[in-house]
Amino acid sequence: MNLVSIPANPAPSDTSVGSIETPDGVTLRYARFAPPPGRRGTVCLFQGRAEFIEKYFEVARDLRDRGFAVATIDFRGQGLSARAVRDSRKGHARRFSDYLIDLETFVKEVVLPDCPPPFFALGHGMGATVLIESAARGHRWFDRMVLASPMIGLAHQPLFGAAAPVARTLRLLGLGRLTVPGGSGRVAAFQPFADNPLTSDPIRHARTAAVIEAEPALAVAAPTVAWADAAYRTMAAMQRPHYAARLRQPMLLVAGGRDEIVSAEAIERFGTHLRAGSHLVIPGAMHDLLMEQDQIRKLFWAAFDAFVPGTPLYG
């Protein structure tokens, strides 16, 4: 497997890419970015729904500038990892525990044998949710985790309204592989900048679209009914009383004040119950915190530097 490198988004130097197979037979693509001199450990990077390794080249450079090696993976069903349905643009998963299989396989086969410790995690959106679920099940792969826009609740859908029971009913009727009602095959990165719900930075928005244009196999559009049902049930579990309080994993949750995808309020509520973590909201930031304008990214990285041991403080 290779990485897609274009002039607007070149692959970082000292990169290795390969594939691993999960115990349930799914092929996953991974990449490792070598540590700079005076290494401080490894940050494992976990993307959100419909994202891919190439979208985070700039983030990998930011982390290497901080002294870290970087390791990352395409979750099943996205990037250049194996897709489970014939229409590869459908974002499909049978259950969220499948992503935990991806995480554990990646840690055991790539991170532990080949990456310098100590280990930290940086997750976005769905990837952040997978990290929380892993911690809730007692795994302590990482010393600390920084979670950007974790999918704990959806914006503008208090308690999910009718969407969750509709998804559950359609799933029970055997329609799990259908696109969610109202969804389409249109890729979010191709939305006009003025209408996009992800970032207020036009250059980074265009860069993501350019990468997908260079390699259309990276594209993922709307999720399936099965994915939505799994996501709603996972979020409902995370919002139960005492879920957050039982976690012992040190974590920092960062939300965007203008996020139209996930609920900043749900992230704040979750964060107030953490015993070994904290949370903050960045005013004016949209969902893709790491793809935002420079002034917003600086605030995110300042929080990261203050939370993750060993990082230098940047002005």
Rank of each mutant, 00 (worst) to 15 (best):
R207Y: 10
R207A: 10
T208M: 14
T208K: 11
T208D: 13
A209Q: 07
A210W: 06
A210H: 04
V211K: 00
I212E: 02
I212A: 01
I212Y: 02
E213Y: 00
E213P: 00
A214V: 02
E215N: 06
P216C: 09
A217S: 13
A217D: 13
L218N: 02
A219Q: 06
A219T: 07
A219I: 07
A219V: 06
A221S: 12
A222F: 03
A222Q: 01
P223S: 11
T224V: 09
T224C: 09
T224F: 09
V225R: 10
V225L: 12
V225I: 15
A226E: 14
A226G: 10
W227S: 08
W227K: 08
W227N: 11
A228H: 04
A228P: 01
D229H: 15
D229I: 13
A231Q: 12
A231H: 11
Y232T: 10
Y232Q: 08
Y232H: 10
T234C: 14
T234M: 15
T234K: 07
M235F: 13
M235K: 12
A236I: 10
A237I: 14
A237G: 12
M238T: 05
M238W: 05
R240V: 14
P241M: 11
P241F: 11
P241E: 11
H242D: 15
Y243K: 12
A244N: 11
A245P: 05
A245E: 14
R246N: 13
R246L: 13
L247P: 03
L247T: 06
L247N: 03
R248I: 02
R248A: 10
R248V: 06
R248Y: 00
Q249A: 07
Q249F: 06
Q249P: 03
P250K: 03
P250S: 05
M251H: 03
M251T: 05
L252T: 02
L252C: 02
L252P: 01
L253C: 12
V254E: 00
A255D: 08
A255R: 04
A255L: 09
G256L: 07
R258S: 13
D259K: 07
D259C: 09
D259F: 08
E260K: 08
E260S: 03
E260A: 10
I261F: 04
I261G: 01
V262P: 03
V262K: 04
V262I: 12
V262R: 05
S263P: 12
A264T: 08
A264C: 09
A264L: 03
E265C: 06
E265Q: 14
E265P: 02
A266L: 00
A266N: 00
A266K: 00
A266S: 04
I267L: 09
I267W: 05
I267V: 15
E268R: 14
R269T: 15
R269I: 12
F270G: 04
F270D: 05
G271K: 00
G271M: 01
H273I: 02
H273S: 11
H273W: 09
L274R: 01
L274S: 00
R275F: 01
R275W: 01
A276M: 06
A276I: 00
A276E: 11
G277P: 11
G277K: 08
S278C: 06
H279V: 14
L280Y: 02
L280H: 03
V281W: 08
I282E: 04
I282D: 03
I282N: 04
P283R: 09
P283S: 07
G284A: 10
A285R: 03
M286Y: 15
H287M: 12
H287Q: 10
D288K: 15
D288G: 12
D288Y: 13
